[in-house]
Amino acid sequence: MNTTPTVPAPPAEPAGPPPSAKGTATRPGDKIFLGLSRGSGILLLTLMAAIAAFLTYRAYIAISENEANFLTSFEWNPQGEPVEFGIAILVYGTIVSSIIAMVIAVPIAVGIALFVSHYAPRRLAAPLAYVIDLLAAVPSIVYGLWGALVLVPYLGGMNKWLDQYLGWTYIFDKTGTGPARNLFTVGILLAVMILPVITNVTREVFLQSPKMHEEAALALGATRWEVIRMSVLPFGRSGIISASMLGLGRALGETMAVATVLSPSFLFSGHLLDPGGGTFAQNIAAKFNEADEFGRDALIASGLVLFVMTLLVNGAARLIIARRKEYSGANA
């Protein structure tokens, strides 16, 4: 997601648009050009509206035939008799795996961002930032392949260990057997995937924290940690939040990495280490082939929910960024 360049910070205030010379707009060339560019903007808005409209339309077709409650049913049987499908399992799986990913990724990402911006030896910092940037560009299917063939076998032992020592917590109680193709593994894989995304944005915010504050704190005899706690972190808080939400948006909608790693099922289990569950995107990918037109409409209905979820998360992230004029979240 975060593949745009580390744009060198704009020299002071960005130049911005010139005051539009009203007189020039009358020339035909200008009119056409303005029309074209405004048209493109409007096209984008229309596109968003069309996405919402078409998904809602197809979802309506599906939901109006649904004999189960779309929001609370644990079934996915749009082609059966009776027609029953619901997203309860998907909501649960999507949110749980994303939360696991966030819990793991956000602290580590902040740590790496601090490492690159304040701790790493100078000579190391720039290449590091570069590498993290590149990692954000690795296609998700490659993460999925790695997750399924390397991570899952690797986490088998850790699952046993968690079950043995933390089994009393209920969530880490492993009642099933077999390889670690569960929501917990999905969460870890998603954490690895969104780590570079969150790190990139956070690091840029940290780099922009006011040098004067830091130097003043240092001059007063503060340790490096105290400088960071008193000056860098408060400055970067909203940056961290919005970066996390961008990461969350990506985790919510990730398809391939979940589809390769998870052993899907529509049975609810509160035990994170048990196989089963599913996410919106994974379910769409898994059920698509066997779906007839109505089945596809049902999948589109679930896709609409995912769309709204990511819309809310991303919108919130952007609003937080927008409140801070100093940092534009453009690079995400």
């Binding site: 398809t255 819309l311 991303n314 995400a332």
Partner: peptide
């Protein structure tokens, strides 16, 4: 605003939109 939000559309939703149209 919507361009910002659009960067966060999951790829599968984009696929579903084209599928539905």
């Amino acid at each position: 605003f919507f361009v910002d939000v659009m960067t966060g559309i999951p790829s599968i939703v984009a696929g579903l939109f084209i599928l539905s149209t």
